[in-house]
């Protein structure tokens, strides 16, 4: 269905991914400025701020097939139209749920979607940080068909013209997962520094990504190697001292990463330090039996 707005403003309201791709493709081929709209939390305020709006908008809210999340034997698939509120209580995906619960406010979580988070690709975005640690696959669709890419590839290249994100896919959890962040008032501002950590007891490794220091979500490889070598994988536990070393190595790695632009209120030193603290705390909660509220 379409609400025509004269020649220069058209709202497409497709009901299927196929229709969405067709609308997007037609606008791109006509050389018109077209934007996808999901929950609107990023795009609608930006349209107001940005003077002249786009010539066409493809609104995805009615595409029910994008609002599906599902589980197979080894993977979880989350449609691009799934909101943070939908994910916040998902027991099969504790890490995704934890990251979603700390996004914005009720109002933002009710609207903000997975596809919108990827479309905006805010380097401090909570979902992106988690997906980077989870080594998620991003599923895209266009008139050329479907393709899959990883988070790094997606952040580097973005969607092609005429392409939309249809879903993300992560492995089913095989160990504890957590998501921690610090910053200003959560309901109003994105995180300053955040950390996603996943324990994979099957492959005997820890995956950890930090945002808010480097130009995008950053995997702390040296710390991950330490964990792989020194965690007691028969029990999936580690001493608290290892958490501290994990944090130090994470901070050390981040010091060498390509930095986000300097921000006078939150100097890089502070953000690196905070990242080390968060990484140690996340590790302690997942592997050293430290609970929320315990001193760590």
């Amino acid at each position: 269905m379409t609400t025509p707005g004269g020649p220069s403003t058209v709202l497409h309201r497709p009901g299927t991914v196929g229709e969405a791709v067709a609308s997007l493709t037609a606008e791109v081929e006509a050389g018109r400025d077209v934007r996808l709209l999901a929950g609107g939390t990023d795009l609608v305020p930006a349209l107001r701020a940005g003077g002249r709006g786009p010539a066409a908008i493809v609104a995805l809210r009615r595409v029910l097939e994008l609002r599906v999340r599902g589980a197979s034997a080894d993977a979880l698939t989350v449609g691009a139209g799934v909101t943070y509120a939908d994910l916040a209580g998902w027991s099969l995906a504790p890490g995704l749920a934890a990251a979603s619960r700390v996004v914005g406010s009720v109002q933002i979580r009710n609207c903000g979607t997975v596809g919108g988070a990827l479309g905006s690709a805010n380097p401090r975005g909570d979902l992106l940080t988690f997906l980077a640690a989870a080594e998620a696959e991003i599923l895209l669709a266009s008139a050329r068909g479907a393709r899959t890419t990883d988070v790094d590839g997606f952040l580097r290249d973005g969607p092609e013209p005429g392409e939309l994100v249809t879903a993300v896919r992560v492995a089913r959890p095989s160990g504890p997962q957590t998501y921690l962040k610090i910053g200003g008032r959560q309901a109003a501002f994105p995180a300053l520094v955040s950390c996603a950590l996943l324990v994979d007891r099957v492959r005997e490794r820890v995956c950890c990504a930090v945002s808010g220091v480097a130009t995008g979500p950053w995997r702390v490889a040296a710390a991950e190697r330490l964990a792989g070598d020194e965690v007691d994988w028969s029990t999936g536990t580690a001493p608290l001292a290892l958490a501290r070393r994990f944090g130090e190595l994470a901070a050390g790695g981040l010091r060498a990463a390509p930095p986000l632009p300097e921000d006078p209120r939150h100097p890089a030193d502070y953000r690196v330090h905070a990242a080390g603290v968060l990484a140690a705390r996340a590790f302690a909660r997942c592997l050293a039996g430290v609970r929320r509220g315990d001193p760590a």
Partner: peptide, 16 residues
């Protein structure tokens, strides 16, 4: 979840 290349193009009405 792939998208077919075909499908009606809604809303491409009006002159340019």
């Amino acid at each position: 979840m792939s998208a077919g290349p075909a499908g009606p193009v809604d809303g491409a009405e009006g002159d340019d």
